[in-house]
């Protein structure tokens, strides 16, 4: 059963739109897949390689703005942003990495957080390029139907899933885990930690950037406060993986399902909307204290709690 899970899930996602669901459900599924992609990229850098990033909004935003600027300043198709963001995000994340990868643990986390904020403020102030806080809006989205967007993000998600699986089965994956467990020991075993941390950062950033470029094309509007948001992007990314399961293959997916659904539920109940940060914060505190490895990572603990299997 476990062996066939990926195929069953993939099959479900492939035929799902043919069940004649409403556009709202399609929208939720598109968001779900997008967050799964971002979660997987964060999981590579932070879950497997141990470099906890609080600044994935920076990469998401750069990707989105690559797409947006192509459209607004160069009058080209914003879809070109998807391949192009690989280069812009790749180069910028390399530069960020030069500064922040010298740091360890919490200091790395905070330095990435700061870099996310730097990009937000820069995007707000460089009005000639980014139109500042006005943001960039697509006059017309390519498709009215959600279906093409759905299959595009589905193929991106599947590709990223396979990429992560491949990367972690190679030597690279073992290097990452070695760095997470003990950076000094890894270094003394001859692993070039700086190189591999940079690789993890760039791969992770590029994937997030592609998701950002997709977001621009799908939503049709971005401004610095949306795409460089600390709480709504960076922290949600962390929560998705923390809730789902750090350093697990399916963690980001499970986490994205829970978080996206929770977000929608909270939004749909009047009076609860203002509380959403408190609910997310409370959930985060709960997960960290009781299920520090997430739902997938601590699945045995959950089972034991419900008495399904005595320990």
């Amino acid at each position: 059963m476990k062996k066939y899970m990926p195929f069953i899930t993939l099959g479900f996602f492939l035929i799902f739109p043919m069940l004649g669901v409403s556009t709202y459900v399609m929208h939720i599924f598109i968001l779900l897949l997008m967050w799964t992609t971002i979660g997987m990229s964060w999981n590579l850098l932070s879950g497997y390689c141990g470099q906890v990033s609080f600044g994935h909004a920076a990469f998401f935003g750069i990707g989105a703005y690559t797409s947006g600027i192509l459209y607004s300043k160069l009058s080209m198709s914003p879809w070109l942003g998807l391949p192009l963001s690989v280069f812009t995000v790749g180069i910028l994340s390399f530069i960020i990495g030069l500064a922040v990868l010298r740091l360890r643990g919490p200091f790395f986390a905070l330095a990435t957080l700061a870099s996310g904020e730097v990009f937000r403020v820069t995007a707000e102030n460089m009005e000639w390029l980014t139109s500042g806080t006005l943001g960039i809006m697509l006059q017309q989205r390519l498709w009215v139907s959600k279906l093409p967007y759905y299959y595009i993000i589905l193929s991106i998600t599947v590709a990223v899933f396979l990429l992560m699986k491949y990367l972690l089965s190679t030597k690279l994956g073992y290097y990452f885990v070695a760095i997470r467990e003990d950076q000094d020991a890894a270094e003394s075993l001859g692993i070039n930690t700086t190189l591999y941390k940079t690789i993890a950062l760039i791969v992770s950033a590029v994937v997030t950037g592609i998701a950002g470029a997709f977001y621009m094309n799908y939503m049709g509007y971005i401004d610095p406060h949306i795409v460089f948001a600390l709480h709504d992007i960076s922290i949600i990314t962390i929560m998705i993986v923390m809730v789902g399961g750090v350093a697990t293959q399916w963690g980001p997916f499970i986490g994205a399902v829970i978080m996206v659904l929770l977000q929608e539920v909270v939004r749909s109940i009047p009076g609860l909307g203002a509380m959403h940060q408190a609910i997310f914060g409370g959930l985060l505190i709960f997960i960290i204290i009781f299920l520090p490895n997430g739902i997938v990572g601590d699945f045995k603990k959950i089972k034991r709690f419900f008495g399904l299997r005595s320990a």
């Binding site: 879950g47 906890v52 643990g105 986390a109 962390i238 940060q277 914060g281 985060l284 505190i285 960290i288």
Partner: peptide, 24 residues
Amino acid sequence: SILPENQVILTVGIGMVLASLATV
């Protein structure tokens, strides 16, 4: 836990709860 940074993420959660309760 796998990530030692859990404590830092925990303080983020505390901050979120405080800020959100103040908003409410």
